[in-house]
């Protein structure tokens, strides 16, 4: 069974849990699934197994603690310690996919927006000047910031599991929100406050071809995903 089918089956079966078990199981699900570097097939298989187990226990009126012990978080950690890591190749493709999507969206939005501003409002120029040195540094900085944001959000979601206390959830949400906002701010501010000099070759490309490049990149990332099943 492929991971996609298992996730669907999991979604279906989960509906049969009672409120208390559902809350616990969903915490476990989030906690285990957020480890993006773990082998997905193995992760989904074991998640489905423990769901089946919990469902039978529920039918026999056994408490979840009998299945997972008194510390479900520690139980999840034990599972994670054993689940093998995703192969380097799969991780590589995943990163390539994210980077491609990111570049595609940036160039698409840049190209289309710039084109619209130019033709409808006579703002900005019809061609976009690209300097290789400056451009690649900005892309690198942006990817780094993107990585930090994704990492922080995942960390926050993970920290919000297995908690009775709603208040600490709110505090950690605010904390994550502030840092993410700072990252997005940095995204915009870095080119303004940090003058990165142009170096290497520069060339002009029309805004519309910029958008076309974006669309092409997007297509490539879609094909990559379809061929390699990067995302379930």
């Amino acid at each position: 069974m492929r991971t996609k089918e298992m996730i669907q089956l999991n979604n279906e079966k989960r509906k049969r849990l009672n409120e208390e078990n559902l809350k616990l199981y969903e915490d476990m699900l989030v906690y285990v699934r957020l480890n993006t570097r773990k082998d997905e097939q193995q992760t989904e298989e074991v998640l489905l197994e423990i769901l089946d187990h919990l469902l039978i226990a529920q039918a026999e009126n056994k408490p979840a603690a009998m299945v997972f012990g008194d510390d479900p978080k520690a139980f999840c950690q034990e599972l994670l310690d054993e689940i093998p890591s995703e192969s380097k190749k799969t991780t590589g493709f995943f990163i390539a996919y994210i980077v491609l999507q990111f570049l595609a969206i940036i160039s698409l939005v840049h190209g289309l927006l710039g084109f619209a501003l130019h033709y409808f409002f006579q703002l900005s120029t019809a061609a976009y000047k690209i300097n290789i040195g400056y451009g690649s540094i900005r892309i690198l900085i942006n990817l780094l910031l993107l990585y930090i944001i994704i990492h922080l959000i995942l960390k926050w979601i993970k920290s919000s599991t297995f908690k009775e206390n709603k208040r600490s959830n709110t505090v950690s949400f605010l904390y994550t929100w502030i840092i993410c906002s700072l990252c997005i701010g940095a995204w915009i501010a870095i080119p303004l406050i940090l003058p990165i000099p142009d170096f290497g070759a520069s060339f002009h490309i029309p805004l519309l071809s910029f958008a076309v490049i974006g669309a092409l990149l997007y297509l490539v990332s879609m094909i990559l995903n379809k061929k390699l099943h990067i995302l379930p």
Binding site: V46, H53, V67
Partner: peptide
């Protein structure tokens, strides 16, 4: 506890 077999099964 019943669940403790699962980490072992993975291993």
């Amino acid at each position: 506890s019943e669940g403790s077999i699962y980490p072992i099964l993975i291993r």
